[in-house]
């Protein structure tokens, strides 16, 4: 019973959804302020979601109906699992199991896979184009991200358990404190932007090129679920990064503020990157991730092995 509650309410679906909407609001508000606009009210992400739920669901003719409708749910489940495991590890570091880091890394890919599935199932050329771009982007950012994670594993003495990674950092200082850690965080932040498909890596959607790409055929509740997945990813990716590189969170006294600050700084970073750069082309993105970013990642791993 407790496990169900954990996945559905706290720290699973409901909590992540609420936090994700808050993060989405912060992102939109900051963006608006950067652009000399006023920005939406606090509950706007919720209104958007509820409004979409009330709209008609249109399934395009000739599409694979079940895949088309199940893809959003798959993405939502993926992000819920990641969020639950990461938050559980941060709140109760003794829990979890050895290797849950690997499970988290796998489930982190699920939302992107769901988008690809749904887009290909919708039988639309623009969506297929978007899906193929999403696939290339995934291939591009996965390698450097794993290299960055490898740095954490090496530094903490080969642990594959999320809880242990955090307790290690809380007793020996966060990963960010070392040279290899700084490089790993740079790599991780860049790949985070790609995993969230935000500018400069919003290539699969690219509303100005392929009209929303992967989501072009989605409407009503399925679109709402995709949007919710996006919002939840917006808080889950910073959570993963906080846990892996910034020493996780601690709910004692002023540590609470410090923990919140970590999230906020990561969110701020995401928003600033997305507001100060134009979209790149998919070939440029792949070249960027497999070139300089991967090199930085390898250097970080080597430095970590040497003990820096």
């Amino acid at each position: 019973m407790n496990a169900y509650l954990a996945y559905l309410v706290f720290p699973g679906f409901l909590f992540t959804a609420a936090a994700g909407m808050l993060a989405s609001w912060i992102d939109r508000k900051l963006t608006a302020r950067v652009q000399w606009r006023v920005g939406p009210p606090l509950l706007q992400p919720l209104y958007d979601f509820v409004k979409l739920l009330g709209k008609e669901t249109i399934v395009p003719k000739g599409s694979s109906k079940i895949t088309f409708l199940l893809a959003p749910v798959l993405g939502l489940v993926g992000v819920t699992f990641v969020s639950t495991m990461v938050w559980s590890a941060m709140l109760w570091p003794e829990g979890g199991f050895t290797g849950d880091l690997i499970v988290v890394l796998y489930f982190l890919m699920v939302p992107s896979l769901a988008v690809i599935l749904g887009a290909f199932a919708s039988k639309n050329r623009l969506a297929s184009l978007g899906a193929s771009r999403e696939m290339k982007l995934m291939l591009a950012d996965e390698l450097p991200f794993l290299l960055a994670v490898l740095v954490v594993i090496i530094q903490s003495g080969g642990s594959l358990k999320l809880g242990q990674l955090m307790t290690y950092q809380q007793s020996y200082g966060m990963i960010l404190g070392s040279v290899s850690g700084v490089l790993a965080v740079v790599v991780a932040v860049l790949t985070m932007q790609a995993k969230l498909t935000l500018v400069p890596f919003d290539i699969p959607e690219a509303e100005t090129e392929i009209m929303g790409g992967v989501f072009v055929e989605y409407s009503g509740p399925p679109l709402a679920v995709f949007k919710l997945t996006r919002m939840m990813m917006l808080i889950t990716m910073p959570a993963v990064l906080t846990l892996l590189f910034l020493g996780g969170v601690k709910f004692e006294g002023w540590h609470i503020l410090w923990s919140l600050l970590k999230f906020f700084v990561l969110l701020l970073l995401i928003t600033l990157i997305r507001n100060t750069s134009p979209r790149v082309r998919i070939d440029q993105a792949v070249r960027f991730f497999w070139g300089p970013v991967t090199v930085i990642g390898i250097v970080a791993v080597v430095l970590a092995l040497l003990g820096f």
């Binding site: 963006t31 652009q35 500018v199 400069p200 100005t208 507001n275 100060t276 750069s277 134009p278 979209r279």
Partner: peptide, 16 residues
């Protein structure tokens, strides 16, 4: 043009 290459900050600033 800024909007077209996904650089919405340029869009809003220029129009301001």
């Amino acid at each position: 043009a800024g909007h077209f290459i996904g650089y919405n900050t340029v869009w809003m600033w220029v129009w301001k």
